[in-house]
Amino acid sequence: MQFSEWSLLLLLMKLANYTAIAALAGTLLIRFISHFHLNGNQHTAFLYFLKHWQIKCLMVGLIAAVLQTPIEAGAIAESGFMGMLDRPMLEIVWYSVIGEQARLRIVSFLVALMVASLWNVKAENNNAEKFNFALMLIIAALIAYSFSITGHSANENALVKSILTFHLAALACWIGALWPLLKSCTLLIKTDVEKIMHHFGQMAIIIVVVLLVSGLALLQQYLHSFSALFTSTYGQLILLKLLLVSAMLLLGAWHKLFLVPNINRQRYFETLKGSIAVEMVIALFVLITTSVFTTLVGPPI
């Protein structure tokens, strides 16, 4: 692993991409739960928050997608920041899998921004809004798939790419839902917060199963021996990610089994808010760790 200013830029770009897909997947999940389990117009302010948060994060994703080609070109050129404008380097990157990934992301984020802007939060039951949701779901799947175009899964078959896409989508749903869940505590009445938290807890079981099964499959794919998990940098970073995800899992279980059932007691409600905030900080470290081992460190050859 060689660390340079380009490594930092590439890392930040990957982190921005992860944040964008997480925000998109998380808001879609919470929008889905809200649609089926919240009644009346009392949650309009919350839906407005979801819409604006989604648009902000999609903007971050679009900027990262646009900057991807010049940053990768600069990293390859090794001739300072002017390397970002080096035409032969830009062409090399643009016609490679990185360019393919950037093109898919730019188009997806642009369409997603348009779809998010057209989301009419006051008419959630309209067919147009259901179509809006379905379209956003397809775009989210495309963006999640884009992560399998480059890197260690680039030369793999469709099965491995699908596993990676599911793994990323599951993690994105979980991590991306945390901020909307925290905001729901201030924008919704307690009964609605309880409904959202309860149904998220049920969804989380499916998310965790997908995450673990796909994670194990990817681990088997990239680490050819169990010992590599401890002896290689890549394996050690995966162990760190597992540790962080386990901490999130424990917090999630505590929320689901203890805090949410007692949400009507102010003390537990406040504890729940604090605990979600802690889970968000851990989630950020999960994203940073994932960015490091997918950008700067490769699996042992």
């Binding site: 060689q2 990768e72 990293a75 390859i76 090794e78 090399i92 990157v93 490679s96 899998v97 990185i98 990934q101 175009i149 480059t150 890197g151 260690h152 680039a154 030369n155 490769g298």
Partner: peptide, 12 residues
């Protein structure tokens, strides 16, 4: 030498 691999990784 510096090359871009088929998987998009920089090789030196």
């Amino acid at each position: 030498w510096i090359a871009l691999g088929g998987d998009g990784h920089k090789m030196t």
